[in-house]
């Protein structure tokens, strides 16, 4: 994790794509967020505090995986390389992924997961609601489908934040600590990166900063109801995920996610 990176030579995102390539690049960012968070949520199966939560987190991950498949398929259709969803998921290296740092963070305790989910689902809910008006008809259709799913994810996380925050002293303390752990990763969700800005300009996407106030208002009201406190701004923040700059944990995540496909390229079953 670091501040801004100084590039020696040409930075990978120095040229903002246009036309179909722009739709492809934008869908790739959204798809990578969904894919990597789906991978993290899958880690909860057999690890959650109760079997119903194994199923819930698995189901939420499955929704995100479905969204990722549709988004990566759309990206591969338009980026001119002819790659399919599996090529993009399994055969790209770390620097080619465009997800934010929030979704790649290693699994913490259950309170951490609910803190991450309550923010990410609130963000995705606003994002997909806005994208139903995208000028790309496929992206608009994916968003219209996903927004209904994310409604359930957000509700699930909110119920848990309420229960843990307004629960026992132990659950309250751990939920409060979790809100502080995720804090440095939130600003990045609302950064107007080059691809999103160009996509918003073209009517394909939405400006991430335009989602900020609605998301924060939603979570802030919930946190108050849960007798918790939104932490003050942190002294550092993540950045660079949209340029392919990731945390150390990302390499380990990709190794686990990709090794079967890479060990047996082209395998079918």
């Amino acid at each position: 994790m670091s501040g801004d990176v100084t590039w020696v030579g040409k930075a990978p995102e120095s040229v903002v794509p246009e036309g179909d390539s722009l739709v492809a690049a934008y869908c790739l960012q959204l798809g990578d967020d969904a894919l990597i968070y789906a991978q993290r949520l899958g880690e909860w199966i057999s690890r959650a505090p109760q079997i119903e939560e194994d199923m819930a987190l698995g189901n939420i991950g499955l929704d995100l995986l479905g969204q990722a498949r549709a988004l990566l398929t759309r990206s591969g259709e338009l980026d001119g390389t002819g790659r399919g969803e599996d090529d993009l998921a399994y055969f790209r290296d770390e620097r080619e992924f465009r997800c934010v740092h929030l979704v790649q963070q290693p699994r913490g305790d259950f309170a951490f997961e609910m803190a991450r989910m309550v923010w990410f689902a609130a963000y995705q809910r606003e994002l997909y609601a806005a994208l139903t008006g995208s000028s790309d008809p496929v992206l608009a259709a994916i968003a219209a489908k996903a927004v209904k799913e994310v409604d359930y994810h957000r509700d699930h996380a909110e119920q848990w934040v309420l229960r843990l925050g307004d629960g026992t002293q132990e659950s309250h303390e751990r939920m409060q600590a979790a809100l502080e752990v995720v804090l440095p990763y939130l600003a990045e969700l609302f950064d107007d990166d080059a691809v999103s800005s160009a996509a918003a300009e073209a009517g394909i996407g939405v400006l991430p900063s335009s989602l900020h106030d609605a998301v924060v208002a939603r979570v802030a009201a919930l946190v108050e109801r849960a007798t918790l406190t939104l932490p003050d701004d942190s002294r550092w923040r993540s950045r660079g995920g949209r340029r392919g700059v990731h945390d150390q944990c990302m390499g380990y995540l990709l190794a686990e996610m990709q090794h079967i496909a890479r060990s047996h390229p082209g395998a079918t079953w």
């Binding site: 119903e52 939560e53 199923m55 819930a56 698995g58 189901n59 939420i60 499955l62 929704d63 799913e149 359930y152 509700d155 699930h156 119920q159």
Partner: peptide, 13 residues
Amino acid sequence: QISRFGSTSCKAL
């Protein structure tokens, strides 16, 4: 309700 998420995406418990 026991859980919002059941044995498949489309069902709750």
